[in-house]
């Protein structure tokens, strides 16, 4: 997936996370903020990395502010931000997510 512009998704409500993403040329850079970073920081980074890999994104700067989101919510917000960045609104390849 080719990212085209800065984009964001999610909220700062409890159980959610806010994700912003933008194209870059320096590999994957993750900036993570979370109230539970000591306990779950590694796991959250892992979910973000796996999701980007599934989407075929090799270069981006991604910022995630976590408010206690489940893995599936983190995946959903990263996907949402990435597809917005790539300006893909329809014919989402659901079976590959």
């Amino acid at each position: 997936m080719k990212l085209l512009k800065p984009a964001a998704a999610g909220t700062l409500e409890s159980s959610d996370c806010f994700v912003s993403i933008e194209p870059s040329e320096n590999g994957i850079e993750i900036d993570l903020k979370s109230d539970v970073i000591r306990q779950f920081g590694d796991r959250i980074r892992e979910v973000i990395g796996e999701t980007l890999e599934t989407l075929g994104i090799e270069n981006c700067t991604i910022s995630v502010t976590d408010k206690g989101a489940l893995d599936c919510t983190i995946r959903a917000r990263v996907e949402s931000a990435a597809f917005r960045s790539a300006e893909i609104k329809e014919e989402i390849p659901w079976e590959k997510l």
Partner: peptide, 15 residues
């Protein structure tokens, strides 16, 4: 609307 679909998809697939 787009974001809600990703939320729905991941919820139904994982919860």
């Amino acid at each position: 609307k787009d974001s809600a679909r990703f939320s729905l998809y991941n919820a139904l697939r994982n919860i």
